[in-house]
């Protein structure tokens, strides 16, 4: 109930914001702009879907930006320098990402380390390796790249729903199904509710943790591939700081940073809100593009405050009938003890 309230508020902010933008710049309300917004943020949407799982489970993954950077460099080198067919290169890089995520998950579980520290180390590691591979931007000229960027579904009103936008939408739908309809998804929420209680209920907490970070890294890898299509290049400095944009999108989408609550659709709305702000600034033309960050920051503050407020309300209403402390309980001889049969 609370979760859907958060998503509803996010949706309202998106619609209201979009309406305001459209009032000032009527051209914004066109399929062309909306389709571009999806294309520009395709990689962000994909990586944010993975982050949603991680944060709901009570963790955090700071390595995703670096993993995207690594993926673009590795893919570009594999295709352009090592002569590996593109799809084989994609498969290789995704396997590497999966192993990387599994390693982080294992370290977090086995050594009981905070995910923050472990994934921070992962962030440096992945970024360092991509610099080691190459420090320059490597253009990708494989035919599949031009084919994919030429492909688009034409929308009424002149919009082009590109292949990478479609990829993002498909991945989001799959992730939403995984999170909301499977045992795996239920376990993710359970972990975020209470790790100890989840373990007591017989859920294998270790393998779950490993799988969640694997999923996040694989999705970051997919986002990296999409990013390489978007820029048609591999560069070790790409997607610097994207992990923070991702976390912001997830939190604005109504996922609790403390875990246990959230949704993929909310995250999608969070991504769209960030994209909308960027679009507005592009339309305005006089504002520095860094205003995107400022607006995102303000929104984050507002949403976190809002979540705390909603939680406090919920806590108050749920405590009322139960009686919070043993202190409030009157010993029972006060009432006649009639045993029901």
């Amino acid at each position: 109930m609370k979760a859907s309230t958060s998503v509803a508020i996010t949706a309202f902010v998106l619609v209201a914001g979009f309406a305001l933008c459209a009032l000032q710049f009527p051209n914004i309300a066109s399929t062309r702009v909306v389709a571009n917004l999806l294309t520009d943020n395709a990689f962000l949407g994909i990586v944010a879907a993975g982050m949603t799982f991680v944060i709901i489970s009570g963790g955090i993954d700071l390595s995703v930006g670096s993993v995207i950077g690594f993926t673009t460099v590795f893919t570009a080198l594999a295709i352009e320098r090592w002569g590996i067919p593109p799809f084989a290169a994609f498969a290789m890089v995704l396997v590497l990402c999966a192993l990387f995520g599994a390693a982080m998950g294992t370290v977090i579980h086995v050594f009981e380390l905070p995910p923050f520290i472990v994934t921070l180390a992962g962030m440096f590691l992945a970024r360092g390796v991509s610099f080691l591979l190459s420090t320059e931007s490597i253009p990708i000229t494989a035919p599949i790249y031009s084919a994919v960027s030429d492909f688009a579904i034409r929308l009424p009103g002149g919009g082009r729903l590109t292949a990478i936008a479609i990829a993002m939408l498909v991945i989001l739908v799959v992730c939403a199904l995984l999170l909301h309809l499977t045992r795996f998804g239920a376990n993710v929420y359970a972990l975020g509710g209470s790790r100890a209680a989840t373990a007591l209920m017989g859920i294998p907490v270790g393998p779950m943790t490993v799988r969640i970070y694997m999923l996040s890294s694989v999705l970051a890898g997919l986002a990296g591939i999409v990013f390489s299509f978007y820029t048609a290049a591999g560069y070790s400095l790409s997607a610097v700081g994207v992990e923070l944009d991702t976390i912001a999108a997830v939190v604005i989408g109504g996922t609790l940073l403390t875990g246990g609550q959230g949704s993929v659709i909310g995250t999608f709305l969070g991504v769209l809100i960030q994209g909308m702000i960027q679009t507005y600034i592009n339309f305005d033309g006089t504002l520095s593009s860094w205003w995107t960050k400022i607006a995102t920051g303000v929104l984050l503050f507002v949403f976190i405050a809002l979540q705390q407020g909603l939680m406090a309300l919920a806590r108050r209403s749920s405590l009322k009938p139960a009686g919070a402390k043993p202190v409030d309980v009157k010993p029972v001889e006060a009432t006649p003890a009639g045993a029901p049969t």
Binding site: T182, A186, A190, T198, L200, G202
Partner: peptide
């Protein structure tokens, strides 16, 4: 020692939910 954020039904059946083709039969 249950999970306050999950539904009562999920709390009762966590880890042993009835499924069909991997989808929990809510």
């Amino acid at each position: 020692n249950l999970l306050p954020n999950l539904s009562v039904a999920q709390n009762l059946y966590l880890g042993r939910q009835p499924t069909r083709f991997g989808v929990v039969r809510e």
